[in-house]
Simulated assay, not measured.
Amino acid sequence: MENLIFHFDGGRARGARQAQLVGVVSSGNLEVLIEAAALQGACEIHVQTAARGFGAIWQAVMTDFHARWQLADTRISINDMGATPAVVSLRLDQAVESMLGESA
């Protein structure tokens, strides 16, 4: 397993939010837990993945995600079993939409 941590500043504050868990950990998929956290306006993303050596791809996907949503005071935990970048983006968007009650 590989553990990656991404940290983004410069997000926007959002209203009341409840933690959400989306997806399932299975071959080629992942689960995402998203929750509010006191992070001084930052967004932290913790990834635990079975696919080692893909840090640059994870960085690109997380940077794109942050550009879309610009979350502040949010912690995201991802448990991955080899999901493709498209599936990762889909699950992240699904988690945010569930938490905020809105769509992209």
Rank of each mutant, 00 (worst) to 15 (best):
A86Y: 01
L71F: 11
Q70P: 01
A104W: 05
E102D: 09
T63D: 05
M62S: 05
V47L: 15
M99R: 00
D73T: 12
A67D: 08
L100N: 07
G10T: 13
L71C: 07
G23D: 04
V47Y: 01
M81Q: 10
L100V: 13
R17E: 07
A19H: 09
E2G: 11
G53I: 15
R14K: 09
R52K: 15
I5Y: 06
L92A: 06
M1D: 01
D9K: 15
R75N: 04
S103K: 14
L21Q: 09
V96A: 04
S77D: 06
F6E: 04
A42V: 06
M99C: 15
D73P: 02
G55A: 15
N3Y: 12
A83G: 06
V25K: 08
D73L: 03
E35V: 03
I76F: 04
A38Q: 12
A36P: 10
V87M: 12
P85N: 07
V25I: 13
G41E: 03
L100W: 10
C43G: 00
A37W: 06
S98K: 15
A60D: 04
V61H: 02
E31V: 09
T84W: 00
L39P: 05
W58S: 05
L30H: 06
F65T: 02
V96E: 03
I5D: 01
A50T: 15
L71M: 11
G55Y: 05
H46E: 07
A16F: 10
G23N: 11
H7D: 11
Q94V: 09
T74L: 07
G53V: 14
L90E: 07
T49F: 14
M1E: 02
A86H: 01
A13E: 11
V24D: 02
H46S: 08
G11M: 04
W69Q: 08
Q59R: 15
A16L: 11
T49A: 13
Q20G: 01
E102A: 08
S77L: 10
F6A: 14
G82M: 12
Q40D: 15
L39C: 05
D9P: 08
D93W: 02
G41Y: 11
A86K: 12
G101T: 13
G101D: 02
L71P: 02
G41W: 10
A86V: 10
H66D: 07
Q48R: 12
P85M: 09
F54Q: 12
G10D: 04
Q18V: 13
I34R: 14
I78W: 04
A86S: 11
E44I: 03
R68D: 03
V22Y: 08
T74Y: 05
A38R: 13
N29Q: 10
Q94M: 06
E31D: 08
E97A: 03
L100K: 05
F65K: 02
V88T: 14
A83E: 02
G15W: 04
L21A: 06
